[in-house]
């Protein structure tokens, strides 16, 4: 367990820049998720930490130990793969014990620690089985035990749940988080699934095109993103243009709102669940489409030349027929985006 510091990491594949000058400081025991669309460089960052992909430049420290020039076997990391990557010719016992054997730990201690690790993931009775006989979820728990049993400085997880079905994914996600908390392990988790990242991480690092866009606590990133990319990547949002003067924003459909210090052209992000619809015969909006999603009902409303999405949930959620004239109620605190990087 250690603090992990990445400084000015860079990696190119031919002419493609996979990661461009990446900095990250992960505190001891912190759970960080690297989130981004595919090809954003998040997996490359993880592979550079693990030592599988050597960086072109930059440094990596585990605590005070600089490890970026070390071969993978000298780094003491635990890596969990999307593909599980269990050794098919070895039993679960031998899979989990592999790292300990490589460290020349005495046999009796290997047996004890492998037993403990398999018990930790509830697979102790399966020790003599081969991986192919296990379900995907079980295989990934073995992979987790195999990565944890060597007591790594940092646990690296590369899309570990992406091959599992939805229910199992949530279940195993909670298991991973519980284990990480219990062991106080520093963890870096790569995913393209924004809800998974927000559910599991202390801090989410959002990446795009080899760069960090924004990082922060899941709630802060979701509620108060600085960039349009963040607002759009995390959940759903409505991007609305307005003109501001003297702290008042005027919207294209005629409404106004008060925002402290706003001036000039502004872009705001409003989550669909924060918008209320009110049926009003002279309202500025018209319901175009309604979608029943089970927990939520989503209305698409034509408003001032664009489409605004509004979601409501629960028994009281209105279901309006297309064509209904509505008025829009925006939340009292509006969030203005910093458009510099959009």
């Amino acid at each position: 367990m250690a603090r992990v510091r990445l400084s000015a990491l860079r990696k190119t594949f031919g002419a493609t820049v996979a990661v461009a000058s990446f900095d990250l400081d992960v505190a001891d025991g912190e759970f960080v998720a690297l989130l981004g669309p595919s090809g954003c460089g998040k997996t490359t960052v993880l592979r550079m930490i693990a030592g599988i992909a050597p960086p072109d430049s930059g440094t990596i420290h585990f605590g005070d130990r600089r490890i970026d020039s070390l071969v993978p076997e000298r780094r003491n990391v635990g890596l969990v793969f999307q593909s599980y990557a269990l050794f098919p010719h070895m039993t679960l016992f031998d899979n989990v014990g592999f790292g300990l054997r490589m460290r020349r730990i005495p046999r009796t201690e290997i047996a004890r620690r492998v037993g403990d690790a398999l018990a930790l993931v509830d697979l102790a009775p399966m020790a003599r089985r081969y991986p192919r006989l296990l379900s995907g979820g079980q295989q990934q728990r073995v992979a987790l035990a195999r990565a944890l049993v060597v007591e790594p400085d940092v646990l690296l997880l590369d899309e570990p749940l992406s091959n599992l079905d939805a229910k199992l994914r949530e279940h195993l996600r909670d298991d991973i988080l519980a284990l990480q908390r219990r062991l106080g392990m520093t963890a870096i988790y790569v995913t393209h699934d924004q809800s998974e990242a927000m559910a599991i991480a202390d801090r989410v690092v959002l990446m795009d095109a080899g760069r960090m866009i924004e990082a922060g606590r899941p709630r802060d990133l979701y509620r108060a993103p600085r960039h349009r990319f963040t607002a759009e990547f995390l959940g759903h949002t409505n991007i609305i243009d307005g003109k501001a003067a003297d702290g008042r924003i005027a919207f294209p459909w005629g409404d106004t709102a008060t925002v402290e210090g706003a001036s000039g052209d502004v872009v705001i992000s409003v989550r669909p669940e924060d918008i209320r619809l009110r049926v009003a015969g002279d309202g500025p909006g018209e319901v175009r489409d309604v979608t029943f999603l089970g927990a939520d009902v989503e209305h698409k409303v034509a408003l001032g030349g664009s489409i605004v999405r509004a979601r409501s949930s629960g028994l009281e959620a209105p279901v309006l027929v297309p064509g209904t004239r509505v008025a829009i109620e925006l939340p009292s605190a509006l969030h203005i985006l910093n458009e510099a990087r959009a």
Partner: peptide, 27 residues
Amino acid sequence: VPGDLKAAARTLGAGRLATFLRVELPL
């Protein structure tokens, strides 16, 4: 032999030769 298996062996502490003898060769 999948690249992930080799990477897994390496991160678990096996050098190139040990990875070859214990993972690649048997498979």
